[in-house]
Amino acid sequence: MNATATALNIITWIVILLAIRMIYRKQEWRPKLWKMLIVVFVGLFSFSINLPFFDQQVKLAILPLGVWILYGLYSRKNEGESWEKYRKYAWLGFLANYLFLAMSILSILLHAGIYPKNDIGTYISEINGAHIIKTHPSAANLTLDRHLLMSQIDNMKYEPIYSDEWYRETFETSAEENRKDERFPYQLTGINSKWGSGVHSLILVERDGKGILITTGQEQFYFRSDQSFLKEGK
């Protein structure tokens, strides 16, 4: 679950409800409550484009399709009186798109502040059920030393990835022709990311037991510790 997005979503809906109440109080017309809510909801419907923002996408509403539909339905009724009644609610629905846009931008910024991307603690927070699985035949028979990993985690350093070099190395260092050594032959699983971050990542461990390569849906991060957190045997 993404806590910042959920919280801001709830706030957005509360703001919309407050705005509905405000219009309702100022108007002399008293439309039926359920009709009014449907009008706001239909008003939300829009043609929009997705814009990239910090590796994510936000929706920018352009055409108020919902408002047009409502206008088409109501403008002919009661010589336009019905449209007069509902007009503000319909536009409120459309404007709410921009409130959602602002909130999603705020959510992305807040999320980046609370759960920094280049902080390993964002991805590895709870490790009580952690273990490694061998994902490549070049992996040795090692197991995870949880205590050591726990103590190392805060001191791990963020380091650059040399993807092209690593790729080439696997072809150069192999002793036999059909045996290649994978730089990251273990997967670290049974881990929870930081509460509320909603982050999913694939975490791989380096052959020497000191490196962690984290792949998220957007990018990769590489961390190194001074000491290996893999140990022999059970």
């Binding site: 490549h136 990835i161 092209d164 790729y167 696997t170 994978e182 990251f184 390569l213 990769q220």
Partner: peptide, 17 residues
């Protein structure tokens, strides 16, 4: 196994077998 470099961002996909 694969790798890509996109606008300076490295991505290394380890081989899984």
């Amino acid at each position: 196994r694969g790798y890509s470099i996109n606008e300076g961002k490295h991505n290394y996909q380890p081989s899984v077998q």
